[in-house]
Write a protein that binds this DNA or RNA. Structure first.
Lengths: 217, 217, 217, 217
DNA sequence: TATGAATGAGCATTCATTCAT
DNA sequence: AATGAATGAATGCTCATTCAT
C-alpha cells in the first residue's frame, strides 16, 4: 500500500516522517473511524481490529488515545492554512502573479477545494474535535495570528490601495472572504454531500458575488 | 428557578410541555455538559450529579441517554428555522413589511443572532451531534425542504423581479445568503467567542457586502 | 374475572382468604412470569405492568419480592400433598374404599394428574425455587414427615399384610411409588409437553408395571 | 490445582480443550455459584471475586454471561447420555456383554450414578436452566432423538424378542426405565441429599422392582 | 517490535424498595 | 388503598491502558 500521502500530510515543517507499516495502518484506521463516529465514541479496540494489529501495538506508538488523535490532527492544522505558510506567498501576490484579488481568491479556493476533497475525513475530525480540545484551539489561534493574519492583511490592503476592493476595514474583508470560502466548502462537503452540483460553476458564482460585494464603488 | 425558557424552547408546535422540576434540572445539566464536552464524552452519572438527582431518575424520564439527547435537540431543530415556519412569513414580505431584500436579511440576521446568543449551548450540541446521528440529519433535511426552501425561493424571486437583486439562480442566492448569515454567526459565536467586536457594526458591514454582491447591475 | 380458584389454592387450612381484585391480579401476573422466566429473572416492574397496577401497589401487599414468591409457593406446598392431609384419608383405605394398592395408586395418580394439569405454572415455580430457598425446602421436609410419611407407611404395610405387595422395606415401596407417579407427571408435563399421548393409556401401563414390580411373588 | 477433570468434562467429541489457569478458575467459580444460587441470581462480579480474577477477565473469555453458562452446560449435555454415544454400545449388548436387560440397566445405572455423583453441581445447573433456555432444550431434543432413542429401542426390542421383558410398546419400557433410573438419581442426589442410605442396596431394590415390573409373564 | 491476556474503573441501564401525595 | 416519582446500589459489560512474553 502506498502511504506516501499520509506521511506527507503528517509531516510538519520539513522533518521527514517514517511511518512503519503498522503505524500507517493504525493511523488510517483511526482516521476512518474517528471521522465516522467521533473521537469519544471510538474505542481503541475497534481501531486495532480495523488496523489488523494488537491493541497493545497502538499504545506502543501513541502513549494514549488522545496522543493518537493529536498525531492526526496537529499536522493537519498547519496543512489547512498551508498556502499562507510558504515563504514567498505574499511576494507572489505583489509580483503580480495574481493580477487581481479575484484571481487570488480563486486560486486559494481552488487549492483548498482540492485539499479538503482529498483529506475530507481528517478535516471532519479536525472540525469536530476542535470544539472540545483546548490544545487544538490554541494551536489554531497561534498559527492563525502568527502565520496567516498579517499576510492576509497585507494582501487585502494591497488590493485596496490598488482600487480593486472597497475601503472597509481589512478585518471585515478577511472575514467575508474566509466565511465565503469556508462556507462554500462546508456547504459542498459537509451538508450537500450528495447533491450533484457543477462544483466549478458554483465556485465561480460564489466568487463573483463575493467580488461584487467587495468591489470598490 | 424559572424554567419557562426551557419549556418554551422544547415545545414543538403548540402542545404545552410541562417539565417537572427534576426534569428541568436534568435537561439543564445535560445541555450544559453535552455542549461543553460532547454527547459521547458525557456520562449519565455526571449529568445526575450536576442536576442533583439520582442517576435512576434520568432514566425514568428518558429511556436512554440518546433519548435525552434527542429530547434536547429535536425541538431545537424547528426553532432554528422558526421564522420560516410562521404562517404569514412570506405574506409579510410581499406586503412590503420588508421594503427590500436587504431589510429582510437584516431582520432575519438580527432575529437569529438573538436566538443563537440565547441558546448557544443547545446550538453547539446540535451542530456537533448533527454529524453523527442520522435521525437528526434526516429531520433537518425534511424541515428544510418542506418548510424553508420553497418560501425562501419565492422571496428571492420576488426581489429579483423587483430588480433589487441580480438574476442568478435563486439556489445560489439562497446559499450565498445563508452562508453569509450562518458564517457570521459561526464566526461570532464559535470562533471569535471572546473578541471584542461591535456586533452590530460587523453585522451591518457583512450585510452591506452581501447586498453589494447580490445587487443587480 | 373469577378468582375463586386462586383463593382456593392459596388458602391454607381453613382460614378464608379474601383477595382484593388488585391482589389477585398481582398474584396471577407473578405466577405467569415466575413460571416462565424464573423468580430471579423476573422484575417487579414487569409484574406490575402485567398486573396493571403501580409498582408500589405490589409492595403494599407483599413486603418484599420474596414474600410474594412465598405467598404463591407456601400454600401450594400443602396442596401438592393434599390427599394425605384430609382427615379420613387412611380410614378410607382401610374401609376398603380402595380395594387394592393398585386402585389406591390409580386414584392418587389420577387426582394428582388433574391437580398438576390445573396448576402447572405454580408447580413449575415450586420445583424451580425449591432448590434455592431453604425456607421452602424445610417446609417440605416438615409437611412430608409430619403428614405424609407415616400415613403412607401405614397404607403400604396394610397392603403388604394383605399379601398384595411384596415384603420389601416400606420406604423402598414408597419411594418406588412416588418416583413412578412423580416421574410420570414430570415426563408428561415438563418434558414431553407437546407429545400427543393418550394420557390415560400411558398412566395405566405405568401403574401396571409398577404393580408388577411391587407384587408379592 | 489439577483441572484435568474440568478439561475432560468440557471437551466435546475429541477436540482437546486447553483451559488457561484463569479460565479454569472462572469456570470452577461459576459452576459453584450457579449451582448454589442459580444462574439468574448470580452476578458476574461475584464469580470474578470467587475466581480471583478481574471482572473484565470473564468477558475476555466469554462474551456474555450466557455464553459462560452455555460453555458449562453444553458439553455436559452430551456427557449425560455418554454411554449411548460410544460406537459399539449396542453391539456390546447383542454380543452378550450384558447377559440380560437387568444387567444392562444395572450397568447403566451404576455408571450414571458415578457420573452424577462426580459432577453434581453441573448437573444441578443443567436441570435448573433447562427450563429457561430454549437453546438447551432443543439441543437435548436433538441429542436424544439422534443418539439415544433409536439405540435404546433396539436394545429393548432385543430383550423383548429374547423373552426377558414384557411385550408392551418399547416407548413405555424406555420411559419406565428412564424414570426409574432418573427418579432414583434425583431422589438420591437432589432430595435426600443427606439421608444415610446404603446406595447400592437401594439401587438393587429399585432395579429388582423395575425388572419385576417389566418381566414377561 | 509486537502481542494479547489481564486489569479495574467506569459505563448505561435496571433493580427492589420507599414515601409523599 | 393506590399511586408513581425518586432512589442509589447493583448489574452486565466496555474501556483505555499495562505488562510479561
Amino acid at each position: 500500500m502506498n502511504e506516501r500521502w499520509l506521511e506527507e500530510l503528517l509531516r510538519i515543517n520539513d522533518e521527514e516522517i517514517k511511518l512503519s507499516e503498522k503505524q500507517a495502518k493504525i493511523l488510517e484506521a483511526a482516521i476512518g473511524i474517528f471521522s465516522q463516529k467521533g473521537y469519544a465514541a471510538t474505542s481503541t479496540s475497534e481501531i486495532a481490529k480495523k488496523a489488523g494489529v494488537a491493541e497493545g501495538t497502538i499504545f506502543r506508538h501513541y502513549k494514549t488515545k488522545k496522543d493518537l488523535l493529536l498525531a492526526i490532527v496537529t499536522p493537519t492544522l498547519t496543512k489547512v492554512v498551508a498556502p499562507f505558510l510558504t515563504k514567498d506567498f505574499v511576494k507572489k501576490v505583489f509580483e503580480n502573479e495574481y493580477g487581481s484579488y479575484e484571481e487570488f481568491v480563486y486560486a486559494l479556493m481552488e487549492n483548498r477545494y482540492e485539499f479538503v476533497k482529498k483529506h475530507l475525513p481528517i478535516i471532519k475530525i479536525f472540525l469536530q474535535e476542535l470544539a472540545f480540545h483546548d490544545e487544538i484551539k490554541s494551536q489554531i489561534q497561534v498559527i492563525f495570528t502568527e502565520n496567516v493574519l498579517e499576510k492576509f492583511k497585507r494582501i487585502v490592503e494591497h488590493f485596496q490601495e490598488n482600487g480593486e476592493i472597497a475601503d472597509v476595514p481589512s478585518g471585515t474583508v478577511i472575514r467575508m472572504t474566509m466565511t465565503t470560502v469556508i462556507g462554500f466548502l462546508l456547504a459542498r462537503f459537509m451538508i450537500m454531500t450528495d447533491a450533484d452540483w457543477d462544483d466549478h460553476k458554483e465556485m465561480n458564482a460564489t466568487i463573483y458575488l463575493l467580488m461584487n460585494g467587495l468591489a470598490a464603488k
